[in-house]
């Protein structure tokens, strides 16, 4: 432990502590707790049984009651540790009437003992309620939502990469009349977020028959101005001589795009692809409007619907939230440095 703290808290200069160092580590420590804590709490809570979730104050770890099969009873009985004048012993509860519990000694099941519930605590061990994760896949439409979300994310990202790179290619490698007008139009669309055109977009989606269709979610989001800018900026750095050489060899323009420019743009395409996956996976407002039937819900809309029900089933919702988090956490773990440098360099979000 001391070696860990020595590693974390040693300053590079090797100088003494200044008040700014105290502030720094105070802030960083605070940051770890506030930023990671809530997600950690979500994950730990997601393994608790409904009864445990209702407990207040909550325990940090998920617990489950120990049970025992007692002769003469069909179901396994929960165990309690009873402490009263007769001493401390472990008993199994048969039933509870008011403040009195009828309990039996597992070893001697014949004799029923009456115990005040104030004198006993449940005998528990750390245990994970995996059922929270299994049940939504079986009983709810969770699997369907997951499938819809994956479909939207994958298809939208592929279309985004293809159409944006084609447009960026035309805008970076061709001189043609109206190029500036096209650039200006793309630029102007930066100012029109989806929340401003919800109503007319909805009527267009309905008019072309895409209401309640996943394609209605996908299409309005794929022509991203940010994507075009990012790719165009990158393609401008590809020397035109490369294209001229290919033209000398009678390559068609399509081949030049597909075989030369696209492979050279791979790093920028990877950046846009990762962002597109995160954007589309997380989209909420637009799917909420376009999708009104359960069969086409995406995960985000489905989760919100469960959470909005009168009787919120937190044990399922917490588990489903964790599952919804998984793809993004994977992206984060493996590509974190890559994404952060991407944002810092481009202001992309």
């Amino acid at each position: 432990m001391s070696r860990v703290s020595a590693f974390l808290f040693r300053r590079r200069g090797g100088k003494g502590w200044h008040w700014t160092d105290v502030v720094t580590f105070g802030w960083l420590f605070f940051g770890v707790i506030v930023m990671f804590g809530p997600a950690l709490w979500l994950i730990m809570s997601s393994f608790k049984s409904p009864a445990q979730l209702a407990e207040f104050p909550p325990t940090a770890l998920p617990y489950e009651s120990r049970t025992v099969v007692v002769e003469g009873y069909d179901k396994p009985l929960p165990l309690f540790i009873v402490t009263d004048e007769a001493g401390t012993r472990t008993l199994a509860e048969v039933r509870r009437v008011g403040t009195t519990a009828q309990m039996v000694d597992p070893a001697n099941s014949g004799e029923i003992q009456r115990v005040n519930i104030a004198n006993r605590v449940p005998d528990r061990q750390v245990g994970f309620a995996w059922d929270n994760y299994v049940q939504p896949f079986l009983a709810f439409d969770f699997m369907l939502y997951l499938k819809n979300s994956v479909f939207v994310t994958v298809v939208a990202t592929l279309i985004t990469l293809l159409t944006n790179s084609m447009a960026a290619f035309a805008l970076s490698k061709y001189e043609f009349r109206g190029r500036n007008a096209v650039m200006l139009t793309v630029l102007a669309t930066l100012m029109i977020p989806l929340s401003v055109i919800l109503v007319p977009l909805y009527s267009i989606i309905s008019a072309v028959g895409l209401f309640n269709s996943l394609w209605g979610v996908i299409l309005p989001t794929v022509a991203t101005p940010t994507g075009i800018f990012l790719l165009r900026q990158y393609m401008l750095t590809i020397p035109d001589e490369l294209l001229e050489a290919a033209r000398m060899d009678h390559a068609s323009e399509w081949q030049i795009y597909w075989r030369i420019v696209l492979p050279l743009t791979a790093p920028a395409l990877a950046v846009l692809g990762i962002f597109s996956v995160v954007w589309r996976w997380n989209d909420f407002l637009w799917p909420l409007i376009v999708l009104s039937r359960k069969e086409v819900y995406t995960l985000q809309v489905g989760l919100n619907t469960y959470a909005g029900e009168l009787n919120v089933q937190w044990h399922f919702i917490l588990a489903m939230t964790v599952v919804t988090m998984i793809p993004v956490v994977i992206v984060f773990l493996f590509l974190q440095r890559f994404i952060t440098t991407g944002i810092a360099g481009s202001g992309l979000k």
Binding site: F7, F9, T20, T24, Q300, T321, V328, K349
Partner: peptide, 27 residues
Amino acid sequence: RELRARSFWRAVFFFPVLLSPVVVGLI
């Protein structure tokens, strides 16, 4: 500042950015 494990600390603060708004709201 000159920190040890700077990319770790940067990740700590950046982590919620990628979470979906629904997940953030529910957490």
